[in-house]
Amino acid sequence: MSVSLGRLGLLHIKIKAMGNSSDELTKILAADTARWAKAAEAGNIRIEQQRWFQNAGA
């Protein structure tokens, strides 16, 4: 059985789904990126880039 957490499911758990404009999303993403970049820098966290997709067809 598949359970979908649609609009009614969100209302059931007291969460109201709301849409934002693309400008608002851009601002949110910029703020989040800056925030997490500071956290990563402070913690000396580096991203490892893996090229798994190159071997996917092999």
Rank of each mutant, 00 (worst) to 15 (best):
W36G: 02
K14H: 15
K16T: 14
K16N: 14
T33S: 02
L29W: 00
L29A: 04
T33L: 07
D32R: 11
K27M: 11
K38L: 00
G43Y: 04
G43T: 03
L29C: 04
G19F: 04
I15L: 00
A17S: 14
A40M: 09
E24V: 08
L29P: 04
G19N: 05
G43F: 00
I15Q: 10
A39S: 07
S21E: 08
K14N: 13
A39C: 09
E41Q: 05
A17P: 12
I15E: 09
K14I: 01
S21R: 10
N44T: 11
D23R: 05
N44K: 11
K38S: 07
K14P: 01
M18V: 12
K14W: 00
A17F: 08
T33D: 06
N20Y: 14
A37L: 11
G19D: 02
D32P: 08
K16A: 09
G19Q: 07
G19M: 02
I28M: 11
W36D: 01
S21C: 09
W36E: 01
G43K: 05
G43E: 01
K16E: 15
A40Q: 02
N20D: 13
I28N: 05
G43C: 03
A31P: 00
I15M: 01
S21F: 01
A42Y: 06
N20V: 12
G43H: 00
L25C: 11
G19I: 06
R35T: 05
K38P: 04
K27C: 10
W36R: 10
T26L: 12
A30F: 00
A39L: 14
N44C: 01
I15C: 07
R35A: 08
S21H: 03
G19P: 06
A17H: 14
A40F: 08
D23G: 10
K16D: 13
A34D: 02
T26H: 02
S22P: 12
K38V: 03
K14G: 07
N20E: 15
A37D: 07
E24I: 02
A34G: 07
N20G: 15
A34S: 03
A40K: 09
A17Y: 12
S21Y: 05
D23L: 13
M18T: 14
A17V: 04
S22V: 12
A37R: 13
A37Y: 02
T26E: 15
R35D: 02
I13R: 11
T26D: 15
A37E: 03
N44S: 06
T26W: 08
A17D: 15
D23N: 09
K14D: 14
A30E: 10
T26K: 08
A42C: 04
N44A: 09
E24T: 06
A31V: 06
K16G: 10
